[in-house]
Computed example of a mutant assay.
Amino acid sequence: MKNLKQKLTLIFLLIINFSWACEACKLAQPPVTRSYTHGAGPQGNLDWVIVAVVTAIIIYTLIFSVKYLAKPGEKKSNHIKYSILQD
């Protein structure tokens, strides 16, 4: 129960962090990142390229992590997972 309370508190604090950005920071941000970052946000074209590349990497790794969690594809009988599963 204590662990659940800690997780709920952390989630609550993260939500509050996004919703209570100061008005000066909100006005300085571009419309795309408004209310998600603190400060000026991405300024130039290079910043937007970096954001796009990082977003593509995150989506790529998310897709493959879900894919290999759902269907790992290991079929060899001497794979290490079988030594763990037999115990």
Results as ranks from 00 to 15, higher is better:
I63E: 05
K76W: 06
Y82M: 00
I50M: 04
P72C: 08
I59F: 15
D47S: 05
N78P: 11
I58A: 14
A40T: 01
F64S: 09
N45P: 10
A40K: 03
A40S: 05
S83T: 04
D47M: 06
K76Q: 02
N78I: 10
P42Q: 12
Q43A: 11
F64C: 02
I57V: 15
Y60A: 14
A56P: 00
I63N: 05
K67S: 11
Y68N: 13
F64G: 03
K76L: 00
L62I: 15
F64P: 02
L62C: 15
K76N: 10
T55D: 05
A40H: 05
G73T: 13
S83H: 10
D47V: 09
T55M: 05
V49K: 02
P42M: 01
V54R: 02
L69I: 15
I50L: 03
Y60M: 15
V54E: 04
I58K: 13
L46T: 08
I59P: 12
I80Q: 08
D47W: 02
I59Q: 13
A52E: 09
A52N: 04
A56R: 02
V53Q: 11
V54H: 02
F64M: 13
I80N: 03
N45E: 03
K81W: 11
N45F: 07
Y82H: 05
A56M: 09
S65T: 14
A56T: 03
S65G: 04
Y60R: 14
I63G: 08
W48Q: 09
T55N: 11
V54G: 05
T55H: 00
P72Y: 08
V66W: 14
T61E: 00
T55S: 09
G44N: 08
H79L: 07
K75G: 06
I57R: 10
P42S: 02
A40W: 08
N78G: 01
D47C: 01
D47G: 07
W48E: 00
V53P: 02
V54L: 11
N78H: 06
P72H: 07
K67L: 14
Q43V: 14
I50Q: 01
A52T: 01
E74G: 03
L69S: 15
K75P: 10
S83F: 11
K67E: 01
E74Y: 13
N78L: 11
I57H: 09
K76P: 08
K75V: 00
Y68S: 13
K67M: 10
L62T: 15
N45D: 05
L62N: 14
K71F: 12
N78A: 00
K67W: 02
I80D: 03
L62G: 15
I58F: 14
S65F: 04
P72K: 09
